[in-house]
Simulated scan of single mutants.
Amino acid sequence: MPRSKTLPAELDPSARQLMADLRRLKDHSELTMRQLAAKTGYSAKSWERYLGGASLPPREAVEALARISGTDPVPLLALREVAADTWDRRRAGGQAHTGGQAHAHTEMPAAPSASSPSDTAEVPSPRPAEVPSSRPAEPTPGRIPHLALAAGVAALAVALLAALLVMLRLEDDVTPAAITAPPRSTAPSPPPTYTCRIARVDGRWSAGINKGRTTEIGYGDTGADVAEAQCLLRRAGISPGGIDGMFGPLTLRAVKAFQQRAGLTVDGMLGPHTWKALRG
């Protein structure tokens, strides 16, 4: 996406500031859209919508871009929360407006007229007032035995159903214990160990771990390429912590310090230029 593309005019200030900051981080990292998609897990089309202001990026996408560029994600996430609140209110306002128009066109059924002739014709004539009897109503002969029989059958059915459920519950509790084998205790595999063997190979420094590869790596990566970079950083006099093959905070700080000393772009990523300076 060209850097000169103008953001939509309807964006609120917080969303506009968020898109501008994300654009700046993307340009600073010197990554193409395809490289950005490969590193963050979001497609290039998605990033075009996010950076173009057509769609609000999710929290994970903002955190991923901040991690790649070595930037604190907290201010960006705060901007995103404010922008999301305004974004949701604007969407809810549009839906409410549409619903209000639909409600305005809903017709209510007409109320019947109080003077309708048909209503007057169906009004029953008043009957003489009856004095209620104080005697209780007598049960209908033959009804009580039928009710008792029906209640007994229902109670029996409920009891049988409850017994069946208890049997099924017991089978569920017993069967897995008889079939499932006891878990095996497996010892965790030890992490790989790396040894720095600093030497000049074809006029370039090497630690003898990743066979001279210059694969682009960054914060959160692991493996032999990270261990090779850690050894070369230590050779350059900047401690990355341990030689453990994990690109953590200490290694990130060491990479940035080396890039600043070498006059490179301080982004915390080991790209071709940083590898070349390390192997010097």
Rank of each mutant, 00 (worst) to 15 (best):
M19G: 00
M33S: 10
A15G: 12
C231A: 05
P240S: 10
I238Q: 05
L232M: 08
V201G: 01
P249V: 09
S115I: 11
D221A: 05
A257E: 15
A64G: 09
A187M: 09
A229P: 01
V131Q: 09
A148W: 05
K276P: 00
T86E: 10
R127K: 13
D221T: 02
L79M: 07
I243G: 09
R34P: 00
W87T: 01
G52M: 08
E171H: 11
T175W: 07
H103C: 02
P183I: 06
A162P: 02
P8Y: 10
A102P: 03
S69L: 00
R67S: 11
A181S: 04
D172Q: 14
H105K: 14
A257S: 15
R23D: 07
T195Y: 02
A110H: 10
P128G: 07
D85N: 01
D21V: 03
R89N: 06
A111Q: 11
R261F: 03
L25Q: 13
E216L: 06
M33K: 03
Y42W: 11
S133D: 15
I68F: 08
F258L: 04
T251L: 05
A254M: 08
R213E: 12
G242D: 15
R261S: 12
A111H: 09
R213V: 07
G70Y: 03
V174W: 08
R127E: 14
D244E: 04
A199C: 02
C196V: 12
Q259N: 06
W275R: 07
D172T: 12
L161I: 08
E107A: 10
L76D: 00
D221E: 07
R184E: 15
G94V: 01
G152L: 12
A236K: 14
I68R: 10
F247G: 03
R89V: 03
